[in-house]
Design a protein around this nucleic acid. Structure first.
Length: 421
DNA sequence: TCTGGGGTCCTAGGACCC
DNA sequence: TCTGGGGTCCTAGGACCC
């Protein structure tokens, strides 16, 4: 058996932990640049605010109903996520951290020793007590079914946060009540196609022939199909694999026309990407740089380009990557446009200790390595941008918009909540 | 005026090899 | 007129996830 522990309205719940006035009120969290709603409390959902709704389109509604609006505070959410996982680890040795707000627990053999319902209730209670985050737990013989169970646990209060699918009857019933689009692995495109064939529930889907699914939805679709039928195909991944690509990109607070400012942004993203590479002890053999104009502005001339620059030797040194990324930018930059977004992607990533050398390499890699080590340790100790390269600028001209940022309650001393005695 | 960011996997088809 | 049978690697595009 697998359990899926899912944090309810996670980002909103994180904000609520430290601000009790938000309890019972509609709350939303916005994407980067305060663009659109990416997390909603139940009260906000009830007001009809959709996932991904543009903020400028719901601003009136929010004012009218006194919706509490926040910018994303990823530092806070990441730290809260760690705390939740720390508590889950006390209940199960085999855990897969699937996303910032979801973890799979391998319950193999647990049913012999525990009443799973009671056990999961204890987990939910412990997490709520220890972190303030409410969770829903689904338990089933496959991960895909556990996902469905957790949806039910969240949706219907009768389950009291825990839903278990442990018999054929329960499985069939669950499939019949699960809309096809809510199945893990069935996205928008397949949903549209299946609905056109009058397949509306997960159960209908399982009545198709396996051959049809294989032919039309490839092996991944077939895997979903088998999982729904109760055959476990998606295994636990308890060790987080190294990223194969690392992307850093942002939309700007306002449009940028000049090369100097744009290069500051690209340099900053390159530095962030390089730091991520070093964190997973990897190097990149190629770096992709892209820039584009604001494609929502039909009244302005549009331009979108990307370029891949290959390095002579895979690297994770910020100054070396900066050199190639900025060279790429120079190649694709056109001065007559106004840019809205830029990004840098680290590609062809290899482990640090498996880098292929180059006969004509002129760089003192030991020196670079030592320099980066100092840079990382200073920034870890004193804050992310304490030490940086001059080409990165101060960010004043292009920083993203974050007008409603909450304090970093758990990670920044100055932001710690203060209690009165 | 305003419109997010970051990933993975699979498949078909073309280029190329012997 | 006839014109094989295997392979691999790469890329673009499409699907999915949070």
């Amino acid at each position: 058996m697998f359990a899926l522990v899912d944090c309810n309205n996670f980002f909103v719940s994180c904000e609520r932990v430290f601000d009790s006035r938000l309890e019972g009120k509609p709350v939303i969290v916005l994407s980067n640049n305060d663009g659109c709603a990416i997390a909603r409390s139940n009260e906000a959902k009830a007001l009809g605010i959709k996932m991904g709704a543009n903020y400028f389109e719901i601003e009136e509604l929010c004012k009218k109903h006194d919706v509490q609006v926040f910018s994303t505070n990823f530092v806070l959410y990441a730290d809260m996520s760690l705390r939740v996982r720390g508590l889950l680890a006390k209940f199960c040795p085999e855990i897969e951290d699937y996303s910032i707000d979801e973890s799979f627990l391998d319950f193999s053999g647990f049913e012999q020793y525990f009443d799973l319902k009671t056990y999961c209730s204890r987990i939910a209670k412990t997490v709520k007590q220890g972190t303030g985050i409410p969770v829903s737990i689904g338990v089933a013989p496959t991960k895909t079914l556990a996902k469905i169970a957790s949806r039910f646990a969240k949706k219907y209060s009768g389950y009291k946060d825990v839903c278990i699918i442990d018999s054929e009857e329960k499985r069939t019933k669950a499939l019949q009540r699960c809309a096809i689009g809510d199945v893990w692995g069935i996205g928008r495109r397949y949903t549209k196609r299946l609905l056109a064939m009058n397949i509306t529930t997960a159960y209908d889907f399982t009545q198709l022939s396996r051959a049809w699914v294989r032919k039309n939805m490839a092996v991944t679709g077939e895997r979903t199909y088998r999982e729904l039928l109760g055959e476990s195909c998606v295994k636990m991944e308890t060790i987080e694999p190294d990223r194969q690509t690392i992307m850093v990109s942002r939309s700007f607070g306002k449009m940028i026309g000049d090369y100097a400012t744009l290069s500051e942004a690209v340099a900053t993203y390159t530095g962030m990407g390089a730091a991520k590479l070093r964190k997973q002890k990897s190097c990149a053999k190629a770096v992709l740089v892209f820039i584009h104009t604001n494609h929502f502005r039909a009244d302005l001339p549009q331009y979108s380009r990307h370029i891949v620059v290959t390095l002579p030797v895979a690297s994770n040194s910020t100054p070396e990557l900066l050199h190639y990324a900025l060279e790429g930018l120079k190649n694709i930059f056109q001065p007559q446009f106004l840019y809205k977004k830029a990004g840098v992607m680290m590609m062809e990533i290899v482990p640090e200790n498996a880098v292929q050398g180059n006969l004509f390499d002129k760089i003192d890699r030991v020196k670079h390595h030592d320099l980066m080590k100092v840079l990382d340790s200073v920034n870890e100790k004193y804050g992310r941008n304490t030490l940086k390269f001059a080409v990165m600028g101060d960010g004043k001209a292009w920083k993203i918009k974050q007008e409603r940022l909450s304090p970093c309650y758990t990670t920044r001393l100055l932001d710690f909540p203060v209690t009165k005695s």
